[in-house]
């Protein structure tokens, strides 16, 4: 088997208008048009969506899980970014 490997594409589906596209999996295909066809056949056999995106997997830059503390931990201590940090007297009502 000396065939060249088919490129990999990540598949995103918008399940209905008003919602964001969500990652559902991946397919192999030679080009974008065929990737869309394959994604339609593999991931939308039961009315799962209204819109499909396919993105070359190689085009995605991901953060390194090993660096997740450095990336995300600093926000953990910044509780003043949340509304519940601030006290509003009951008499003021909903805010």
């Amino acid at each position: 088997m000396s065939e060249r490997a088919m490129p990999l594409w990540e598949v995103f589906i918008r399940s209905r208008n008003g919602l964001a596209h969500k990652h559902v999996g991946s397919v192999h295909a030679a080009d974008a048009a065929m990737a869309l066809q394959a994604a339609r056949d593999v991931y939308t056999r039961r009315g799962e969506g209204l819109s499909l995106w396919v993105v070359p997997s190689s085009a995605i830059t991901a953060s390194d899980p090993a660096e997740k503390d450095m990336m995300f931990e600093p926000t953990g201590s910044k509780i003043y970014r949340h509304p519940t940090f601030y006290k509003v007297p009951d008499d003021v009502g909903n805010m």
Partner: peptide, 14 residues
């Protein structure tokens, strides 16, 4: 096999 080869060749040509 020929289908995969044709798809790859077509993508390359495009």
């Amino acid at each position: 096999r020929w289908v995969r080869a044709a798809a790859t060749a077509h993508a390359e040509k495009r």
